[in-house]
Amino acid sequence: MVTRVNEDSVAWRDPKRYLWPLGLAAPLGPFIAWALVHTLGLGLFWAFGAFLWLIFIPFIDLVTGPDNSNPPEEAMAALERNRYYRWCLYLYLPLQYLGLFFGCYFLVHEPMGSGERAALAVTLGVSAAIGINVGHELVHRLPGSERTLGKWALAQSFYGHFCVEHKYGHHVRVATPEDFATARFGESFWAFLPRSIFGGIRSSWRLERARLERHGQRVWSRGNNLLVAWSMSVVCFAPLILLFGWGLLPWIAIQAAIAILLLESANYLEHYGLLRQKRPNGNYERITPQHSWNSDQLCSNLFLYHLQRHSDHHANPGRRYQLLRSFKESPQLPSGYVVMIILSLFPPLWRRVMDHRVLAHYGGDLTLINVCPRKRERVVRRYGTGAYATS
């Protein structure tokens, strides 16, 4: 389905306009799961979120193939102003929390075993994970109201520090050894995971403390964005625990862990091995489309609000998701994020698929690659020294 986006002067139609609400299937997951279980009588459908993530999205990606179309420059201003695209995001939040409430209700009141409860927790975790991505989109926006909505989107996963670290840490240090959310060549996802989580938390606290001190404010105050974001998680879950009981705690923890795992695996693949070079003055070169891995798979881009057009996002972080473009010069993933996230969980498979692509992107020159220091000698033995320096 298509519709006119720019009604001022450019007769351009957005072919994906009415496809963006597909992403709302994720927060509706608990309702869809309940309907499938009661219609078909199979408890495995409590894992609807897993089926959506692991089967539906990759299958549609495979059928539809990549979409590398870009809006014309003349249509960008009108596309930016069109509030329809904002409402596609805004609607995610009430559905996310409605799904969370009824998911907790089902966990307590529906007759199900521990395996079925775990399956429903996974469905809630997928909703929370895509909610983090919605929050990612919103915390980049200038209106304070959108940034507040972004914090609420992060609250379900207890990942409020992301609103500070991603914008003021990751976007500044991306594709450098100093960035906690940039995976290094040869680094497994399981080694990257704690480095990114705990490094990001520490970094966000340092950044927020420095900001408050510059403005003459106390760190432990209502002006602290981290304390506000973390308190939102308390406000989110305290009423649910009071209403449904402490037995919810393990399932709340599981769904949050699933969301964090999916987010950090996306972080892992987005800049794996990529490195901005240093200029003679010691500063890093500016961020270009070559410093992020991209994927143009249609369905996963719809569910992730063009997150896979990551190069344009880093080059233009103020650009809304519907405007993000595909670049030929960006390194390309062989599949969508969903498939690549699965591969990242198995380091030998990941290395087999990705290491030669990193090397090809840099013409085989290891000096240009962000190599994991702990794996440096192993990488040299495997790929040869060439011009590679170990100092």
Rank of each mutant, 00 (worst) to 15 (best):
Pro317Arg: 03
Pro317Gly: 04
Asn316Phe: 14
Leu323Pro: 07
Arg320Glu: 13
Ser335Gly: 07
Leu343Phe: 12
Ile341Arg: 05
Gln308Phe: 06
Leu333Val: 03
Phe303Gly: 02
Leu343Ser: 10
Lys328Gly: 14
Ser344Asn: 06
Gln332Cys: 11
Val339Ile: 14
Ile341Leu: 08
Pro348Ala: 03
Met340Ile: 13
Pro317Gln: 02
Tyr321Glu: 05
His310Gly: 08
Asn316Cys: 11
Pro317Ile: 04
Leu333Asn: 15
Tyr305His: 13
Asn316Trp: 09
Ser300Gln: 06
His314Asn: 01
Glu329His: 08
Leu333Lys: 13
Lys328His: 15
Met340Val: 13
Pro317Phe: 02
Asp312Ile: 08
Ser311Lys: 00
Asn301Ile: 01
Ile341Thr: 12
Leu323His: 09
Ser335Phe: 12
Leu304Met: 13
Ser311Gly: 14
Leu304Pro: 07
Lys328Ser: 15
Pro317Cys: 05
Ser300Glu: 11
Ser330Met: 08
Ser311Pro: 00
Ser311Asp: 06
Glu329Gly: 05
Arg325Ala: 06
Phe303Asn: 00
Arg319Gln: 15
Pro334Ile: 10
Gly318Tyr: 11
Phe327Cys: 00
Leu302Ser: 03
Val339Trp: 09
Leu324Pro: 07
Phe303Ile: 05
His314Val: 00
Ile341Met: 10
Gln308Asp: 08
Phe346Val: 15
Asp312Phe: 03
Ile342Ala: 15
His306Asp: 12
Ser330Phe: 09
Leu324Ser: 04
His313Asn: 02
Ile342Gly: 14
Gly318Arg: 14
Ser326Arg: 08
Lys328Trp: 12
Ser335Met: 11
Ile342Asn: 12
Phe346Arg: 10
Phe303Arg: 00
Arg319Cys: 12
Leu307Phe: 14
Asp312Met: 01
Pro347Lys: 07
His313Asp: 05
Gln308Val: 00
Phe303Gln: 01
Val338Trp: 04
Phe327Ile: 00
Arg319Pro: 04
Tyr337Glu: 07
Met340Pro: 05
Leu343Tyr: 06
Ile341Gly: 03
Leu333Ile: 04
Arg319His: 11
Arg319Glu: 15
Leu333Tyr: 05
Met340Glu: 01
Gly318Trp: 10
Lys328Met: 13
Arg319Ser: 15
Pro331His: 12
His313Met: 03
Gln332Lys: 15
Phe327Thr: 00
Ser326Phe: 11
Leu333Gly: 11
Phe346Gln: 10
His306Gly: 04
Tyr337Phe: 13
Leu307Tyr: 10
Phe327Tyr: 15
Pro334Ala: 04
Leu302Gln: 00
Gln332Thr: 11
Pro334Phe: 09
Pro334Gly: 05
Gly318Asp: 14
Val338Leu: 07
Ala315His: 06
Arg320Pro: 13
Gly336Asn: 10
Leu333Cys: 12
Gly336His: 06
Ser326Met: 06
His314Met: 01
Ser330Thr: 10
